[in-house]
């Protein structure tokens, strides 16, 4: 139960200990933090299981681990080791250009990123138990997380005022990417649109996916929010960033590079945890923002080459 808390990226058991001591509600185990993945380039894969084991042994809070988008074999490794949640993450290099993991086949819960409501709905339809904004990981720049949260919130507002016919059209558009592989293969021999009766993914027809998507949209409209927890992630680097995201209605915050790439990780970790709990209290926020040293170096999104933008992976 991570709601209202902060989940921190860690690459060693020692960092996991710092995170737990600071009041993290979970840790995310990975090979390298996003800013290092960005700097090194190449293919980023799931971490060495030895590392996850060390972290599982070190802390009492839940341990999450990242897998590549669509890489269900990596996910099986984490599930068998007892990871408490799997992040199917755009921060690693995607393994499948067409599909995400069919998460309904796993007992371990999954978290997935989104840039707008349609992505969130597709991931929930696939079985994700938690959603987070994608933001732009490893940049220390909160603007993309804010963009994604705005887009999700705005579309939830729109759902409240559209009629059933429009809702049906939205469900149609949102379900379309489930037919990505079928559409790609059809290009070779004809240019019809995928029919509703076609089996497209997870042994299910396009019409089934559309019906699921529509049911989730109705649930979102009635609840006025996502039916699963929705965290902020991607670019959160300061206690104020965390407070900003919480104020936008996020249920909690992931911090990736922001802690262990700052000059005083222990202090930064504690301050961000305090800021998430007390996000509405400006006095506390001021106190915990003082004397933190340097936050992680930031990156302007406009300066990142198009092919290195992580949020466009696995829509």
């Amino acid at each position: 139960m991570q709601k209202g808390g902060v989940i921190m990226d860690v690459v060693t058991a020692e960092q996991a200990r710092i995170a737990e001591d600071a009041g993290a509600v979970a840790v995310m185990s990975l090979e390298r933090v996003p800013s290092d993945i960005r700097a090194m380039g190449g293919v980023a894969r799931a971490a060495d299981p030895t590392k996850l084991q060390e972290i599982l042994d070190e802390v009492s809070i839940p341990v999450m681990a990242k897998v590549r988008i669509g890489h269900f074999a990596e996910a099986r490794i984490w599930e068998s080791m007892g990871a408490d949640m799997i992040d199917e993450s755009e921060v690693l290099t995607p393994a499948d250009p067409y599909y995400h993991i069919d998460k309904s086949e796993f007992t371990v819960p999954f978290v997935c990123g989104c840039t707008y409501l349609g992505e969130a709905v597709r991931r929930i339809a696939e079985g994700a138990a938690m959603i987070r904004t994608k933001g732009e990981a490893g940049t220390g720049n909160v603007v993309e997380a804010v963009r994604h949260m705005h887009l999700v919130n705005q579309m939830i507002e729109n759902l409240k005022i559209i009629d059933d016919e429009k809702l049906d059209a939205v469900a149609h558009t949102y379900a379309k990417p489930f037919g990505k592989l079928e559409m790609a293969s059809r290009q070779e021999w004809c240019d019809d649109e995928t029919s509703a009766d076609e089996i497209v993914f997870g042994g299910r027809k396009m019409a089934d996916w559309k019906a699921d998507v529509k049911a989730i949209l109705i649930e979102i409209r009635d609840l006025g929010r996502l039916p699963v927890v929705n965290f902020a992630a991607g670019g959160i680097a300061t206690p104020a960033d965390a407070s900003l995201m919480m104020s936008m209605g996020c249920d909690g915050v992931f911090v990736g590079s922001g802690i262990f790439k700052s000059s005083d990780p222990k202090k930064m970790a504690k301050s961000i945890a305090d800021a998430v709990t007390n996000f509405e209290d400006a006095k506390t926020l001021t106190e915990v923002s003082m004397g933190l040293g340097n936050a992680m170096p930031g990156l302007d999104i406009g300066q990142i080459p198009e092919d290195q933008i992580l949020q466009n992976r696995g829509l």
Binding site: M1, G5, V25, A26, D274
Partner: peptide, 16 residues
């Protein structure tokens, strides 16, 4: 007192 992570909640209870 709801369920959550006891380590995180206890740290904040003391702080507040």
């Amino acid at each position: 007192l709801p369920g959550g992570e006891s380590s995180a909640i206890s740290a904040q209870l003391a702080r507040l």
